[in-house]
């Protein structure tokens, strides 16, 4: 199994006294395709922010034996952890190819940087194929459709040569076909990477998750396979008991797995 595992112990993030992440333990095995679900405000994005160095946190996060907490963002990235954001952030003025080329290059020396790009690195060609963006490689990323931007972001993580991908709501706002294509892409990617997907959409989760973690109010509520999590009474309560809240649009249905 390839990819690298992530171990989180007693992770806590506090914003002005508000506990956004409140003592979370999490184990992600190498090669897993883990879905991280939970109502809006549960702390999913904050958890990813803490792991990638964007917000201060206490506790412990180790990846390949290295402690991540306290490291600056770019050093954590260089250890092989890549992430996307809830709103796709690609470099809009640069072409698809340039976006990927930059993602491939954090290890480049000054002499390479000062020269013009001649040809296309092999990893970029491969990522273009994997994400199906080959025909669009010379278009500015800003004109891509929403779904294509998300794929480009995933492609950037691939050429960045990360071992662990943390994807924050990658299919939000996508059409049904785009979701299916993205799911297939994630399955392909997870063959040689560890993937964590934050998602609300239960259909999407059912189709593609290998394992699921449910976060609620900063705490880990439940963990297991899709079926186990859906059968969990606590999970049902969180989703069903607060039907007035618009957020958990898709309710997990226990009888179907």
């Amino acid at each position: 199994m390839s990819g690298e595992g992530l171990t989180v112990r007693d992770l806590r993030v506090t914003f002005d006294g508000f506990k956004a992440v409140d003592g979370v333990d999490l184990d992600i095995r190498p090669g897993d395709l883990r879905f991280l679900i939970g109502p809006n405000g549960a702390g999913k994005t904050t958890l990813v922010d803490a792991v990638t160095g964007l917000v201060k946190a206490t506790g412990s996060v180790t990846f390949g034996g290295e402690e991540l907490l306290g490291k600056p963002v770019h050093k954590i990235a260089r250890l092989g952890i890549g992430r996307t954001f809830q709103t796709a952030t690609v470099f809009e003025e640069l072409t698809v190819l340039q976006n990927l080329d930059i993602a491939a290059g954090s290890g480049r020396g000054p002499l390479t940087l000062l020269r013009r790009r001649k040809g296309v690195p092999e990893s970029v060609t491969k990522a273009l194929e994997t994400t199906g963006l080959t025909d669009l490689r010379d278009r500015p990323a800003g004109v891509l459709a929403h779904g294509q931007k998300q794929w480009l972001e995933i492609g950037m993580l691939l050429v960045q040569d990360v071992k662990l991908l943390l994807l924050d709501e990658p299919v939000a706002g996508m059409s049904h076909d785009e979701r299916e294509a993205t799911g297939a892409l994630l399955q392909r990617v997870s063959e040689d990477h560890t993937v964590v997907v934050i998602e609300h959409d239960m259909d999407f989760m059912r189709s593609f998750a290998r394992s699921v973690s449910v976060l609620h109010a900063g705490k880990m509520l439940s963990e297991g396979t899709v079926a186990e999590v859906q059968a969990d009474a606590k999970v049902q309560e969180v989703y069903l008991g607060r039907a007035s809240e618009p957020e958990p649009a898709a309710v997990p249905v226990p009888e179907e797995a």
Binding site: T52, V73, H74, A77, R78, G82, R83, F85, T89, V90, F91, E92, E93, L94, Q98, N99, D101, I102, A103, G105, S106, G107, R108, T112, L113, L114, R115, R116, R117, M156, Q160
Partner: peptide
């Protein structure tokens, strides 16, 4: 140069560049 492309990337989304390492 590649540096020039990187500079534009930093201008447009510094945070994203940081996450690329």
């Amino acid at each position: 140069s590649r540096y020039g492309e990187l500079l534009i990337a930093v201008r447009d989304s510094e945070e994203r560049v940081r996450f690329l390492g």
